[in-house]
């Protein structure tokens, strides 16, 4: 799903997908005791998230307000933890929409989420490689 239109992800989006200060603090947290911490976190994130993104897409398509709220809630905090601020903000809006049952436009937001995730994924891979 996130591989469908990788060309849509512009370099600019990737460049701003992550709050690098969060990345820096996470790397610092790992420090010498646990240098692999950041990479571990990124890998966990990349392993879990496609499924969550799919769940959000499905819930948005089926107008399943509760499902949308739950899936978005979960992704919201992991994204925020890794510094993917835009992705997290988008999840927050989706969660709010799900909670309030105001589902107009959520399919468009879900589509944006797919792109935003693709950008965050690339940025995280880059950050984890350096």
């Amino acid at each position: 799903m996130n591989d469908q239109n990788p060309s849509d992800t512009s370099t600019e989006d990737v460049g701003t997908a992550l709050d690098m200060s969060v990345v820096a603090s996470l790397k610092e947290l790992g420090g010498e005791d646990d240098p692999g911490l950041f990479t571990d976190l990124v890998e966990t994130f990349l392993a879990d998230t496609p499924q969550r993104v799919r769940a959000i897409e499905t819930a948005a398509r089926d107008a399943d307000a509760e499902g949308l709220m739950k899936a978005a809630h979960g992704l919201k905090s992991s994204a925020a933890n890794l510094g993917a601020a835009r992705l997290s903000a988008l999840c927050r809006e989706l969660e709010k929409a799900g909670r309030g049952g105001a589902l107009e436009g959520v399919d468009r937001m879900a589509a944006r989420l797919v792109k935003e995730y693709a950008a965050a994924e690339k940025a995280l891979r880059q950050a984890s490689a350096t």
């Binding site: 996470l26 947290l29 790992g30 005791d33 646990d34 911490l37 571990d40 976190l41 966990t44 994130f45 879990d48 979960g74 905090s77 992991s78 933890n81 890794l82």
Partner: peptide
């Protein structure tokens, strides 16, 4: 925490 990322961070900070 049900979110593995948050849980791992939480655990790391506390253990540190």
């Amino acid at each position: 925490d049900d979110d593995p990322i948050s849980l791992k961070l939480l655990v790391t900070h506390l253990a540190r």
